[in-house]
């Protein structure tokens, strides 16, 4: 039911896939632990990330103090403001990076976690590995909004006009962090089991 060989995600060397915990023969890192524990870790990290996602989107990520009148921007509020100003490409980039990509990652991880029990063959198995690969590549780009807020908070810092980061920024950073941990906790064996056992 399982593949004969397993790839170490740290050093790319090929290892024999045995039952139980597998340590890489080359770099000694743990490739695969007990399946239930990995599954629970991935779920726990994912749920934590989702809670932070809700907080990050409801609380302001940016606080704009202009001559004493304070306006607060949420992520979506910032996207709408950019769209209204006519900066369509930037609005789309921020929307993709801050709203869409985290949601996409949540769904991909959910999909992998809920489907791992079904044996996968041929093309479907390749698709799942590709999905995982995509989540790994796009994940860090969610950090764009946090960087933008940090940059604005640094340069717009005058006596009467001032930008500071909001609670949403902290929640957002933690969301990105826990999503990355959740993706890392996913055991590659969870999605690569198949019945052909090549």
């Amino acid at each position: 039911m399982r593949d004969k060989y397993i790839r170490c995600p740290y050093c790319e060397s090929v290892n024999e896939n045995t039952d139980g915990v597998v340590y890489c023969r080359n770099c000694r890192n743990r490739i695969s632990g007990r399946k239930e524990i990995n599954l629970h870790t991935a779920w726990a990290m994912l749920i934590t990330a989702m809670v932070f996602y809700v907080i990050a989107n409801t609380y302001p990520i940016l606080v704009f103090d202009k001559f004493g009148s304070i306006s607060q921007n949420t992520i979506i509020g910032g996207v709408i403001a950019l769209w209204d100003e006519g900066s369509y490409p930037i609005a789309v980039i921020i929307f993709l990076a801050s709203v869409f990509v985290p949601l996409l990652k949540f769904f991909l991880i959910l999909y992998i976690l809920t489907n791992y029990k079904k044996p996968q063959k041929g093309s479907k198995r390749i698709d799942q590995a590709k999905l995982y690969h995509i989540t790994e590549v796009i994940g860090p780009w969610s950090m764009i909004d946090v960087f933008v807020v940090s940059i604005l908070a640094t340069v717009v810092h005058f006596g009467t006009v001032k930008i500071t980061a909001g609670i949403g920024a902290t929640a957002f950073v933690l969301m990105v962090f826990f999503t990355m941990l959740s993706a890392m906790a996913i055991d590659i064996r969870l999605m690569k089991e198949d019945s052909s056992g090549d």
């Binding site: 940090s150 340069v155 980061a165 920024a169 902290t170 933690l174």
Partner: peptide, 22 residues
């Protein structure tokens, strides 16, 4: 008014405003 963005100043601003996690 004039202000500058450097990487160290950005990090020290975040810390001085008590955004320790960020």
């Amino acid at each position: 008014n004039h202000s500058q963005l450097t990487i160290p100043s950005m990090i020290s601003t975040l810390f001085s405003e008590e955004f320790y996690v960020v």
